[in-house]
Amino acid sequence: MMTESQRKSIRVDLQIIADMVDAGSRVLDVGCGDGTLLDYLVNFKQVDGRGIELSSEGVNACVSAGLSVIQGDADTDLSTYPDAAFDYVILSQTLQAMMAPRTVVENLVRIGRHAIVSFPNFGHWRVRGYLGLHGRMPKSKTLPYEWYETPNIHLCTIKDFIEMCDRLGVTIERSLSLNAHGRLRRINSGPLTANLFGVQAVFMLRR
């Protein structure tokens, strides 16, 4: 179990997601890792929380901490959940590692009344600059891996993501970008700027 002080200082992107979730709601955290966000939501927002995690280390840590988490693969296992089983389905920093991100997003909005998706923005000016200047696959704080060992196989930009949502007919309820200094801005107040200066993006979607 986490201590109170650890809980109070979760990563800023997780905090943004947590703030979007209504207290007491039913939440599924897809790719919940060691359960940091889920634990926060269960303890501070009294949600009925569940998780799916691929790594056995993550699952064991979560279940050992009393969280309801299953070992599973979002690419294959989301299809087993019934429609509208949750108020919120969260996919935080995991979309880019999915085999079939489009199917995953379709499942998220099917299973949840709302889906919250966060991902690193590949359109950030530093990423663009890195490739342009060095001619090599970009690396950064949010994308620290070498190209040959990265789990991030489906990176996208904020613009790409919005376009996919349009194509799927998914409604974007809210969209926020987070710049390098941790400052938040609404994406729809200036999508081009957000795509250039946003390091990360958080979207709330519905079918």
Partner: peptide, 21 residues
């Protein structure tokens, strides 16, 4: 076990599942 877990998910049950090494 996975089959069982999938069915429990489909029934919207509260389920944890771990495969232990």
């Amino acid at each position: 076990s996975k089959r069982l877990v999938n069915a429990l998910n489909a029934a919207a049950a509260n389920v944890s599942f771990a495969e232990i090494h």
